[in-house]
Design a protein around this nucleic acid. Structure first.
Lengths: 233, 233
DNA sequence: ATGGCTGTTTTTGTATACGATTCTGCATCA
DNA sequence: TGATGCAGAATCGTATACAAAAACAGCCAT
């Protein structure tokens, strides 16, 4: 009953802040994350900031170059394909697992409202044209399903993959944003809540394939900052 | 042409040292990893040790308790099942991918000798009764296939899962060690090198199922040190 | 003996200091 | 004009200092 960890410790807070910025596309791949800079933003010493950056580097969404600093990762096309291949393998399994948990009425009682509420939020963000919220919610929906699946390892892996996906979409989206259509998400929720594991898995694959099709993974990773660094190595 | 990173940086060296100890079953789950202690072993300051421990914590093979220190993780039965479920999902995909790469003769030329050499090493370790080497090599064989599959994300994920598996096997192995039989590994190599993706995937699943069957995941996580800590929380 | 209290010791959490490396702007020279 | 080199500034890598928390040991009271 004690307040436990009133707020998450400062390292995690910084990490979460940066991840949130990535998920909302408020920061571009390649952006430098200076230690002092972050430290003054979050009112923390470099020791703390550094721990956060190392964690992010481990997750693959930040790259640390020795003696040069930390940068938001700029995944190349090959890495992008790897990320989506991994998602296409793991997420159907997660969806199927969530569906199998739906056999338990208590699980339905807990998760049906959460999924529905989230879908409403997504629709609302889309309706009001709030792209940043929409893209963030889209990723969070996938995480919600992972939490329903109650598999902490899958959940952790997917968290990293989604953050990386966010960077990839920012770099390679071909035409209109084309976020995970809320329709896809809705029918997915129906399949999961109906306990239809194979169906949910199939829908998830289709959904992911469509997202990947919305990308243009032609070889060059285009971006302003890329030139200055492309010529460095 | 410069000597680049003569040896890996010290943080990574410490991390690797601890992982190696886990992979060879030279250290028990629950063991305390004191910062000063590690520092004096590796001749590094606490700053460096701490970074290594944080990395290991992120991989899930070390647990950091606030103000108490870092300990080798002691995965419970539920977590153990999650690890093997994840492996059963990912490793067949890795094996199939490796098999598909075997269509390229250059890939065969590079990897056939490596796999065969590794199998020989495993047989030799088993023959001379060197259990520690045998269990380490057994894990390394799975990593070798992942490297052949040339998918850096799968490789990273599998690395973590294998380290955790090593702890799990140490905690829950039921009777004789029963490491991945070299026979399994050998037929797996045959399927992969023959380019038989589905077959390799199937063999991998069988292999993993057999390993998991060699465990006794009955609820209690038994171990000497466990009592003192079980009563702490 | 048992249980609780208190001062001491050990160990971790965080900030900061200092050397090393890279970056930047300006002056110099072909 | 443009390249080159060289301070000076900024930034990172690492060790260390100090504060805070936990573990420990001894002591007293029951």
């Amino acid at each position: 009953m004690r307040e436990d960890n009133g707020q998450t410790d400062r390292t995690t807070a910084i990490r979460n802040g940066i991840v949130a910025a990535i998920l909302e596309h408020r920061v571009q791949p390649g952006t430098k994350l200076g230690e002092d800079e972050l430290g003054s933003i979050y009112g923390a010493s470099r020791t703390i900031v550094r721990a956060a950056l190392q964690a992010l580097a481990h997750e693959g969404i930040v790259v640390i170059e020795k003696n040069r600093g930390a940068f938001i990762a700029r995944p190349g096309p090959a890495e992008a394909r790897e990320v989506f291949e991994a998602r296409t393998l793991i997420e159907p399994a997660i969806a199927a697992r969530a569906a199998s948990r739906a056999a338990d009425p208590a699980v339905i009682a807990e998760w049906a409202p959460r999924l529905r509420a989230h879908l409403d939020e997504e629709r609302a963000a889309l309706a009001r044209g709030d792209d940043r919220a929409a893209i963030r919610l889209s990723g969070e929906y996938h995480m919600l399903i992972a939490r329903m699946a109650a598999h902490s390892i899958y959940e952790a892996i997917l968290g990293e993959l989604i953050a990386r996906s966010s960077l990839i979409i920012l770099l390679y989206k071909s035409r209109r944003a084309h976020f995970c259509g809320t329709d896809h998400h809705a029918v997915l929720a129906d399949a999961i809540l109906a306990g239809d594991g194979p169906g949910a898995g199939r829908l998830m694959v289709e959904h992911l394939v469509e997202i990947e099709h919305g990308l243009d993974l032609g070889e060059p990773a285009a971006l302003g900052a890329s030139l200055s660094e492309a010529l460095r190595g």
